[in-house]
Write a protein that binds this DNA or RNA. Sequence first.
DNA 1: GTCTATAAACAGATAGAC
DNA 2: GTCTATCTGTTTATAGAC
Lengths: 187, 187
Amino acid sequence: MRQIATAVGLSKSSLFHHFPTKLALYGEVLDRVLERLERGLCDDAQHPGKTAEQLGHWIDSMIGTLAEDVPAARLMLRALVDEEPFPPFEFEAEGRELMSFELRLERVIDRFRSLLEQGIADGVFRPVSIGDTIQTTIGAIVFHFASGDLGEALIGDPIFSGTAVERRRREVSEFIRRGLLACNCDT
Amino acid sequence: MRQIATAVGLSKSSLFHHFPTKLALYGEVLDRVLERLERGLCDDAQHPGKTAEQLGHWIDSMIGTLAEDVPAARLMLRALVDEEPFPPFEFEAEGRELMSFELRLERVIDRFRSLLEQGIADGVFRPVSIGDTIQTTIGAIVFHFASGDLGEALIGDPIFSGTAVERRRREVSEFIRRGLLACNCDT
DNA sequence: GTCTATAAACAGATAGAC
DNA sequence: GTCTATCTGTTTATAGAC
């Protein structure tokens, strides 16, 4: 709290005036990240098309949102991995929909899940394990933008640079598309 | 330190007798995880074969090692994502090779990297971005076993159960194999 | 090696003036 | 809303007996 207060040019006490507890501040920040992930999907809903294309839009949207805000992926990853349940909402949300972290997350994931199920039902995608594929996709998308110096060392560019983000979009979209498509080309 | 001491049936002071600082204990535990990841690869080196098969063995080995030890993936993920550099070695390693965390990690990753480069050179794999593919793979493999209750809710089984681990192996191997293979089956 | 007691620093949070 | 000063519990770590 001291570090955050200093970073925003306040004393620790003043920060506590705006957020009653540390957990409340954490929950608020986390909620904003999730809200942006969800809103990105809504903006993207105007892209009807084949299932594979819509799934590509979902991936693009997630990557685009996480690439806009440097700490977002790290916060998400931590929240997803923490043993403690997600932070509760301790005070009024201003102008935003009041909704639990779990519910917001479920909405974002459900969009991906339904595309996956539809693709499998249509025979466009292989009959993969839904849960495992969601886990793989979350890991592939979120970890990269949370990986800091390690990631930068691996890809050779700053993670959040324009070229790196664009390449990431292409690489992940194509990788997942190929991982899912039901075509027989065994070597 | 208090919680750990209690868990192992010692007083906090006795724990400090064995590990001079908290950071030293953390570094020691992390080192053992990495050592096991590396050893798993060595045991696996007796599997010569096509590049795609060897890459499959690498994935199997990583998943097998992380599945053996519940906190391992969570520790790895945290270390990979932390802003702070990896913990230094503060005291003598007994019977183990003295090596920095960074170096051990690099060895494990380099094995994957060289398989990737070889596969691309041979035309077996698509010309993917090496760094991005490593990031995607680490995310896909490590996140799952660190995801706790969320992961269990998504896959419907306890993450570390035999059936879930076996399915995870199959799903991730096949997903990554298809993501990499250079075959033209565009829809 | 293990313990009890204690130090020293810190973090979350509050009181109350301005 | 912002601040200084303070409280209170926690945490890392040490001292020293057994």
